[in-house]
């Protein structure tokens, strides 16, 4: 499969995305924010970091980049898009995903490993979930508290679009397990069509045992499996 990793000024997990895809044996390339075409790509990763310094609001400036217009077209045509951390914030700002991300409840930037419950294992981003339904991956963000109004939340719940929730080791989305105050422990969601998803934790930083966890690989592997079934390569 061929992945593209968007590169905004100030992105800093772009390398991590590229590296993770390559470790899993697939191709990846960068796509500069001033480009206006996605080009021959099977899936797009919108990486973490501090695009445009996260000035004004996290992701607020990046969404107006030329490449984002192309990304919207790619998504509308059914292309697989995953936003991670700042990438999730950008996708929310761009309206590709519902809700918004606000400052962590404790007001501090928070970096640690968390457990994620795969809340819906039947999506292009979660289908390769382990039997336990729980994966351990790092978070690293200051504005990761997911917020959406009640109506949106109901819609998300009904259509099973909440994909990942912060949980404890046993898979219970408890208050203690919530690192940032996200409503309903939401760590990540997808759009209505199910081809665009975003999450605050970093699965791409958990694809090799040597860096503490390989359990995040299942997210990228889910995308790869989906693509191979679609016959793209």
């Amino acid at each position: 499969m061929r992945f593209s990793v968007l590169q905004f000024p100030g992105a800093n997990s772009d390398q991590d995305c590229l590296h993770a895809v390559r470790v899993l044996g697939h191709e990846a390339r960068y796509l500069w924010h001033k480009e206006s075409e996605i080009g021959g790509t099977d899936a797009v990763l919108v990486p973490g970091g501090f695009s445009y310094g996260d000035y004004l609001r996290a992701g607020a400036i990046a969404r107006f980049s030329p490449i984002m217009q192309a990304l919207v077209r790619f998504a509308n045509e059914g292309g697989l898009v995953l936003g991670i951390c700042n990438g999730f914030q950008i996708l929310c700002e761009a309206g590709l995903l519902p809700g918004a991300l606000i400052r962590n409840r404790e007001l501090h930037f928070r970096c640690e490993h968390v457990f994620l419950k795969i809340a819906n294992p039947e999506t292009p981003f979660t289908r390769v979930a382990p039997d336990s339904g729980v994966i351990r991956v790092p978070i690293a963000h200051g504005e990761g508290c997911y917020f959406a109004d009640q109506e949106t939340l109901s819609r998300l719940t009904e259509s099973r679009r909440i994909l990942w929730q912060y949980c404890d080791q046993e898979g219970t989305p408890s208050e203690d397990a919530n690192p940032n105050g996200s409503v309903q422990n939401i760590a990540g969601v997808c759009n209505e069509k199910g081809n665009v998803a975003g999450l605050m934790p970093h699965p791409e930083r958990a694809c090799e045992p040597v860096i503490g966890s390989a359990e995040g690989a299942s997210v990228l592997e889910s995308m790869i499996q989906t693509l191979s079934e679609r016959g793209q390569h």
Binding site: N12, S13, Q15, D16, L18, H19, A20, G48, H108, F109, R110, C111, E112, P138, A140, H202, E204, R205, C207, E208, V210, I211, G212
Partner: peptide, 28 residues
């Protein structure tokens, strides 16, 4: 140290909290 991103760049093999930190030097 939980206010510091110690995982970015996919190179940290031993996180803060042990006697020394260990870093992997890789291609990128």
């Amino acid at each position: 140290y939980r206010q510091y991103d110690y995982t970015v760049r996919n190179g940290t093999a031993l996180f803060p909290g042990s006697d020394a930190a260990v870093l992997r030097v890789k291609e990128d």
